[in-house]
Simulated assay, not measured.
Amino acid sequence: MTGAAKAVAATQSPLLTMTQTTPTALWNDSADPDELTAATGWGAVGATCNPVIALAAIRSDQERWEGRIRELARDLPTATESEIGWKVVEEVSLEAAALLLPAFERHGGRNGRLSMQTDPRLRRDAMALADQAEHFASLAPNIIVKIPATSVGVVAIEEAAYRGVNINVTVSFSVPQALATGEAIERGLVRREAEGLDVSGIGPVVTIMVGRLDDWLKHVVARDGIEIDPEHLEWAGVAAVKRAYGIFQERGLRARVLAAAYRNQLQWTELVGGDLVLSPPFGWQQKFQASGIEPTSRIDIPVDPETIAALETIEDFRRAYEPDGMTPAEFDDFGATRRTLRQFLGADEELDQLVRDVITPAP
């Protein structure tokens, strides 16, 4: 595409404008091949998969994947439903990873990656998480692996980074989780460097699930009868990302902040301009494309102090916003963490059931 053609395309595509005129990267929060193909046309240079996303991808092409499940069951006669299901997750992920290889090569490994999520049923075993992360990383050169920002996950993240795995921190909603895991990645990389091991081409990211923080605070407000302007609640995730991003820059952490789990337009417009990753679901990308908004750099513009003051009347916002608001030991009991882990565990169970229905159909 010529320079003039790119300029015309950008004026018709807010997301393409963002990726062409700012350091902000766009990743697609889906591994569906049709969605990913469209998103790459808007400048997306990354994508993600997890049990929830894999289920959606399988159901969008169910006849094909049911056939593949039958093949795997025949070829692996002693495999459990879970083992077959995770084989399918791997295959869904690798198809998406192949679509991203050109971007991976173009960006020298910093982008062009497909995120695979470790099995949430391993969440209590740091070495099992690190081992699975290392396995996933071996499947393709552009795999990045999700490990949760829990007390056990922090240990697993450092170990996996030391082993050379590119990490995408997940189940993360807060500034203290982002900082603890960003520092864990840094410790793992420093250990590699001290042993003369390669750290070139690294591309770790630390996710803050902006909308899930908002969701949790809305639940707390309703549960506890807290009086607050509902508009303030739309800014909580944005405020957490802005604060974490600033601290990452100050400390020189090599991982980038990534915003995911979108619930509103602010989670796009307010985070443009920095060297970070925005990973909206495909449906939100379509909304942003149709908005007609010309993205401008706003990452360094603070959230209105009045909004921050209102949000700080909620204890769980203070825990999520202040750098020392939680210790790693407290991450596990944060409401958004429990809620999200249970959803991922539920998706694992649904995947097992889907496989069971295929290989042992009801009479």
Rank of each mutant, 00 (worst) to 15 (best):
F334G: 00
T307E: 09
E322Y: 13
P33L: 14
R123Q: 15
T207L: 15
A133K: 02
L55G: 09
V221W: 07
W27C: 02
R223C: 02
E186W: 02
E35L: 06
R64E: 11
R70P: 05
S151V: 06
V205S: 03
Y321W: 15
P328H: 14
E91Y: 04
G201I: 06
P77M: 10
R163A: 07
R319I: 04
I202P: 00
L72R: 08
D34A: 15
A180T: 03
R163K: 07
R251V: 03
D61M: 07
T2V: 06
G3D: 13
S172L: 04
I147T: 04
A73N: 06
L341F: 15
I157E: 00
R106E: 14
D275N: 15
G188L: 01
R113S: 09
R192H: 10
L266T: 05
L233F: 09
Q286I: 03
D332I: 11
T80L: 08
F248T: 04
N142G: 05
E83L: 02
V257K: 05
T327V: 07
T269K: 03
I247T: 05
F282C: 05
Q132R: 10
F173W: 02
D119P: 00
T78D: 15
R263H: 09
R192L: 05
A160Y: 00
T40F: 06
T17F: 03
G292P: 03
L16Q: 01
N166S: 11
V241N: 06
P14G: 05
V45K: 12
E350V: 02
G196E: 07
T337R: 03
G292F: 13
A79F: 03
V89N: 12
K287C: 04
A160W: 01
R223A: 15
L72A: 13
A56M: 12
V88D: 01
H219I: 06
A259H: 06
S13V: 02
R256D: 09
A309R: 15
T118E: 01
R223I: 02
L278T: 00
R124G: 12
G153N: 06
D61L: 03
A260T: 10
A329E: 15
S60F: 01
V175A: 13
A96L: 06
W216S: 08
P176K: 02
T337Q: 09
E234Q: 14
A261W: 04
L179D: 09
P363T: 14
T181D: 09
A260Q: 01
V190Q: 13
Y245K: 01
F136G: 03
A149K: 00
L233S: 04
R356L: 12
T269F: 12
A4K: 13
I84D: 01
A133Y: 00
K87E: 15
G3Q: 11
E227R: 14
A44P: 05
D332L: 03
N111A: 14
D275K: 01
V52G: 05
G283V: 04
A5Y: 11
A161V: 05
A54D: 12
Q343E: 15
I147P: 00
M209Q: 07
E270M: 12
L278A: 10
V221Q: 04
T80I: 12
P281Y: 15
V199I: 12
